[in-house]
Design a protein around this nucleic acid. Structure first.
Lengths: 198, 198
DNA sequence: CTGTAACTACACAGACCTGTGTAGTTTGTG
DNA sequence: CACAAACTACACAGGTCTGTGTAGTTACAG
């Protein structure tokens, strides 16, 4: 216990700069846009020298990719937790809509970070674009797993449909923040599930 | 007739610069992103002095808004044409999906210009954001009109659902260009229409 | 011919951008 | 203590950005 604490302290101490940089970058990139935020601003607000940013991440592009990687991890972990807390397999699928719903009514909602990155970065081979693409695949796989557990026929196909609904709700909500889009998406999802009920 | 032609010529001659600027700006903004393209590049490629750009549009922000306004007009006119060419009211709704489908499989597809603008511009009061929001409302109204003509119950609600599907397909296709998303959206649309058939 | 609208060429301000180079300091470890 | 990793401060290169100021040119209408 004491040892664990010390180790944690050490690893936190080892690169405290990188950690602060990522936190600040995540906040600013999401809120203001990737291109809109300069490395000077990030390092300044993180209370870290710009040199450290470049020593840790190599450049802005990789910092952006890291920002998305971390966001991907956290969102998937959150989703995992939400679906695990539900018992009924079919309800798990609907719980995903609940998770998205809570997110996109928040005051600080600014659309899907991955979609936004794709909008800002035309280059398909940019590291951030690859992370963004993987993120969507990850969500789809998660949905497919749940659909399979709920014993739906063609779980892959259902997962694709549900993902499209979530994307649609997110994109629509990004235009003008409201809770309607998610309710619409959820009700379509219900129709789809009911139509495939055994 | 002759008079019309002369008037057209005159009005085209009156501001040839503005026209060229808008064409070039539309192309660059869409392909490379709004923030990524500077006014110097635009005016240079349009073969027009930067001063003219500022005299005509007042600034970059208004040029961006104009770019979206024109894109909105054209897309709505195109959609109008597509749906008018179909006879069956119910088929008109599906024709909208056909129109989106053709667009998002093109080589130069870079996602929805309005969604991209919203992603790049956090400020909700930016003129471009207002145009983008209006665009989506316009499409929804168009769909609602078609749904009404096809005598569906609750046409507004159906329109909202169909718009969400189109948004989802566009967003998904923007991540990794494929034709699947639209097929998925279209098949969900079919299910929705069938479930509401008289 | 004269006036006016549209436009050009070009310099410039002032800010911001990514990225590097360098010399020196802190901090924890063997 | 000695060493190395991590970090700081700071200047700088070279570029881009939006926007303005100014003097002069072109095209056309009355």
């Amino acid at each position: 216990m004491e040892q664990t604490e010390r180790e944690e302290k050490r690893s936190m101490r080892r690169r405290p700069g990188a950690e602060r940089l990522l936190e600040v970058a995540a906040d600013l990139f999401y809120r203001e846009g990737i291109r809109a935020v300069g490395v000077d601003t990030i390092s300044q607000r993180a209370g870290v020298s710009k040199r450290t940013l470049y020593n840790r991440f190599g450049g802005k592009d990789e910092l952006v990719a890291e920002y998305l990687r971390r966001r991907d991890e956290r969102w998937r972990a959150y989703l995992q937790g939400v679906t695990e807390s539900v018992v009924e397999p079919r309800e798990k699928l609907l719980a995903v809509f609940g998770a998205y719903g809570e997110w996109l009514v928040g005051e600080d909602f600014r659309g899907c970070a991955f979609a936004n990155a794709a909008a800002e970065i035309p280059d398909h081979n940019h590291p951030a674009r690859i992370v963004a693409q993987r993120h969507k695949e990850g969500i789809k796989e998660h949905l497919a797993g749940l659909a399979k557990d709920a014993e739906f026929d063609e779980p892959e196909s259902l997962a694709e449909r549900l993902l499209l609904l979530l994307e649609g709700a997110t994109a629509t909500a990004a235009m003008r923040r409201r809770r309607e889009p998610l309710d619409v998406a959820r009700s379509i999802a219900l129709e789809l599930l009911d139509a495939r009920r055994h």
